[in-house]
Amino acid sequence: MSSAVGVADGNTGAEIVSAPQIAAGKSAELSVILPSFNEASNIPILVGLLDEALKGIDWEAIVVDDNSPDGTTEVARKIAQHDPRIRVIRRIGRRGLSGACIEGILASSAPYVAVMDADLQHDETLLPKMLAELKADDTDLVVASRKVDGGTVGEGLSSIRAWGSNIANGLAQKLLNVTLKDPMSGFFMVRREKAEALAPKLSPQGFKILLDLVSSANGTLKIKELPFTFRERQHGESKLDTLVTLDYFGLLLAKYFGDVVSVRFLMFGLVGASGLVVHLLALRIFLLGDMEFNLAQTGASFVAMTSNFFLNNQLTYRDRRLRGTQALVGLLTFYAVCSVGVLANVGVANLMYADPAYWWLAGTAGAIMGAVWNYAASSALTWRKS
């Protein structure tokens, strides 16, 4: 076993602890997957904490970075130059915690893999206990839970986020028959062969990889939950925003309907539902302004398309998100490809608009007619894979 080596990191000022424990020619027993985005300040600290917590265990950490602009990849690679236990995957053109976790797990050859955040909110001292549980009996998955006796959200979640997490937990348990007390946890350890077997069923989108893993297994995984306290973030900012709520509901619906349709399509549909509300509000405002119905319906359609574009760009296609001039070009493209949908929208709505009292029915029918075309065309052209 090598002795510890301290290396100063020029970007963060933190000391990188390098103490390779994997003997020459011996593979890791445990891979710790660290999905990251803008975690340059936390990675060196976390490596030091893992080094301390996992003494006596042959481990490796796989940093899966979504091309962070703060230099997370460079910081992790600098550590890897001195510590062979650290590996780095840099993802370009792809974003999202679930996808990063899946790629990290598939890159591992260790019999056990742990997934934890790189923001220091997960308690690394729990890892040896989780590993011991997997090795002691026939348990397939060990989850660090905030909801079992002894576990708590601590100071890691605001009261609003804690409230939202409780609602999300309840929906997952009721809709998907998930027995986990904390299916929203992002901290767990699993036998690699079990995760690899389920990988083709998992969605690379979204943030709730554990929920996806458990629901995709359909009760075949033997699970144990251990209590832990969710820490407060010390450096950087949370990657979760309000739009993640739609993302989560998309995953719930996809799993509820047996993955018949993709999460991305359902996300597009949820955004489209919000666009329908925008469409009807705009249509009502235009009609109250004595605008002729065809013109009002057309105007409302473009208002809704604009709303849908920006929501889809932020959420549905966050892994292909358009920025700057690309976003402007994308918006114009979105208008163009959806124009056929608008023609169908206006035509159907006009046929149904026989009575002013049923303006909402005519508007809804027209909006629905353009939905399928909008999804197919925008996926192929506006947010096409590079």
Rank of each mutant, 00 (worst) to 15 (best):
A4I: 08
V5Y: 12
D9F: 08
G10T: 05
T12D: 09
A14T: 02
Q21P: 00
A23H: 09
E29S: 08
V32C: 07
P35F: 13
N38S: 12
N42V: 12
I43K: 11
A53K: 14
D58Y: 12
I62K: 03
P69L: 04
I79N: 05
A80M: 14
A80S: 15
P84S: 08
P84W: 04
I86P: 02
S98I: 07
G99H: 03
G104W: 01
P111K: 02
Y112D: 12
D117H: 11
A118V: 07
P128S: 11
A132K: 11
K135W: 02
V142W: 06
V143W: 04
V143S: 13
A144E: 07
V148N: 03
G151W: 02
I160R: 14
A162V: 05
A162I: 03
N169T: 14
A172I: 04
N177Y: 06
V178E: 02
V178C: 13
V178R: 00
D182L: 03
P183F: 09
F187V: 02
R192C: 11
A195V: 02
A197M: 10
L198H: 00
A199M: 11
P200E: 01
K201P: 00
L202E: 07
P204F: 08
K208D: 13
L210M: 06
L213I: 10
F228Q: 11
F230N: 12
S238C: 09
L240Q: 09
V244W: 02
G250K: 07
L253Q: 09
G258M: 06
M267R: 15
G275Y: 01
R284K: 15
I285W: 05
L287K: 09
L288Q: 13
G289N: 12
F293P: 14
F293K: 00
L295I: 09
A296T: 05
Q297G: 00
Q297R: 06
G299Y: 06
G299M: 10
F302H: 11
V303R: 01
N313F: 07
T316K: 12
R320I: 03
R321K: 15
L328K: 05
T333C: 14
F334P: 11
V337E: 04
S339Y: 08
A344G: 14
V346C: 01
N350R: 10
L351Y: 09
M352C: 14
A362F: 00
G363I: 01
G366P: 01
A367I: 00
Y375K: 08
Y375L: 06
W383A: 05
K385H: 12
